[in-house]
Computed example of a mutant assay.
Amino acid sequence: MTHTLASCHRLLDVIGYVESDPRVQVVFTIAPDVFNHRVEQLLDGLGALVLPWQQAVRERFDLGLAAAHGGLHELHAPLLLLAHGAGRSKRVRSGPSAVPAPADHPVYGLDAQRLTHDGRVLPAALALSHEYEVEVLRRQCPDALATAVVVGDPCVDRLVASLPRRPDYRRAMGLGEHQELVVVASTWGPEGSFGRWPDLLPQVMAQLPAERYRVAALLHPAIWAAHGHRQIRAWLRNCLDAGLLLPEPTEDWRAPVVAADHVIGDHGSVTSYAAAVGRPTLVLPAPEPAPAPGTPQHLLALHAPRLDLHRPLLPQLALTGRIDPAAVLGALTARPGDAAELLRRTMYRLLQLTEPDRPARTDPVPVPRPDHRDTDPNG
């Protein structure tokens, strides 16, 4: 069930564990979601078999995969439910207001509102990255505790596997041997860096010498969906004319992160993943309340160097050493390097099939192809 581009990228990481098995036929469907812009285009470009939503909810399947919550109760299948970002750190808002949720509100994705429907627990297996999520689940939705499986994080495992390909990613992005890449990452919504500081990218580009630095913006797919590609590019036209790299949301964001020399980010997932693989990271002020304790976002909010928008940028790029990448990685995953094996085992258990003898693979992300934007994040 592909709800958005973000959830689709996570599912593309995971289906590779079973997709090559001749006993398994994989089909996709696009669940109703306000941010599902361009999901159909991505799947069509991958040659995926896509069933209309109204047909999918009438069929029965041996396994369902989802990395978002809308419409789960309509699917007729044992469901494996994953997170689509760096763990589960956000608090649930109590209503439509833009006021942030208080610190005692439930953690999104581990709450009964999203994990149950009419008294029924929706997932047959709830994939968690860490034991601390089990404890949150125990408090918030104890009925779902029996479905919890700590599998780690397949996204960070692919990032780690991609580190040796850093020179390839940099060449593909057109970076010179002596140039440094600064990645500016934004999650979606008014508290993301793009929504909260609309002048950030122009400021960064104005302060960095163009012969030494290149700048890339990684905008959450929901930003593109909410505003439209034409509008995003219009807002950033001056930056693009000055050389800003702006990957499409259908492209795999992990190659620029591995290629980066510096990352400026907010409380979104990209910032956590970048810090976990050792990219020097400056964080923008996090919204209130702080992210859920134990999460990588909370760790960064407490200990990472803070970007001061009123001070020159160049000296701040040298602020390193205050956040330990191993600590961020440890907050991201309790099973480093093992997500492929553990997720595949869970999927075959739900499929009621024996696992293949060959080891589960964790592949590096593909090298960007400038002449072909809509690429398969699974390689």
Rank of each mutant, 00 (worst) to 15 (best):
A260W: 02
R214N: 12
D143V: 09
R114L: 11
P154F: 14
V136K: 09
V215R: 05
V107L: 07
H227R: 08
V182P: 03
M1D: 14
P285I: 03
R120A: 06
G195D: 00
E341R: 14
L353T: 10
P167T: 05
H227F: 07
P368R: 02
D157P: 00
E177I: 14
D21M: 07
L81W: 04
P209C: 07
R345S: 09
P315N: 03
P123L: 01
A112D: 08
L246G: 00
R23L: 09
Q352C: 08
A255Y: 01
H372Q: 13
L181I: 04
V50S: 08
W253H: 14
G337S: 13
V18Y: 06
P249R: 01
G330C: 01
A331K: 00
L175D: 06
T187V: 05
E355L: 08
L240F: 06
D199Q: 15
P202G: 03
E74D: 12
L284I: 11
G45L: 03
D374R: 14
W53M: 02
R60A: 15
G330V: 02
P280H: 05
R349W: 10
L126Y: 07
G119M: 02
Q140E: 11
P370R: 14
T2N: 11
S162A: 12
P249I: 02
P364I: 09
A339L: 10
L219E: 10
S162T: 05
